[in-house]
């Protein structure tokens, strides 16, 4: 299973990852459209990004969420009905939404943000199924 891993102790909250992500996936430099979220909480970085746990798969009654061959949870836009239940039932609060894009969006471990991060905070790791 492929997923994005982060080290909070290295993060300077520069926002490069969000800019790279939103530009790549939403064609716009806008942190609100990024699939990784970095917030400043009491002066410390708080990163929200999908760990591919699959909790959202069970909550979606239209079966719009499924794993691809790499174990990454993908949203099938042809099935998604934009209800956003997955957003609030995500255990890691890493399913995002915007009224510009009615269906939700999430990290698919593409690695674009890894290259953009100047502090080496992020990495794509592969975990073998037990």
């Amino acid at each position: 299973m492929k997923f994005l891993k982060y080290r909070l102790d290295r993060c300077t909250m520069c926002g490069s990852c969000m800019a790279a992500c939103s530009k790549a996936w939403a064609k716009k430099d806008d942190p609100a459209l990024s699939r990784i979220s970095v917030n400043n909480v009491t002066g410390l970085p708080d990163i929200k990004v999908c760990n591919q746990c699959g909790g959202c798969i069970a909550v979606c009654s239209s079966m719009a969420l499924e794993r691809d061959k790499n174990g990454v949870v993908q949203i099938r836009r042809d099935r998604c009905t934009s209800c956003l239940i997955c957003v609030e039932f995500c255990p890691s609060a890493s399913m995002f939404f915007s009224s510009d894009i009615p269906s939700p969006f999430k990290c698919v471990a593409c690695g674009i943000c890894v290259k953009a991060c100047p502090q080496d905070v992020l990495s794509i790791v592969e975990e073998k199924e037990a």
């Binding site: 042809d78 998604c80 009905t81 934009s82 209800c83 009615p102 269906s103």
Partner: peptide
């Protein structure tokens, strides 16, 4: 019958 219901 209504195909591709998107929610909007």
């Amino acid at each position: 019958k209504k195909r591709n219901f998107s929610g909007t």
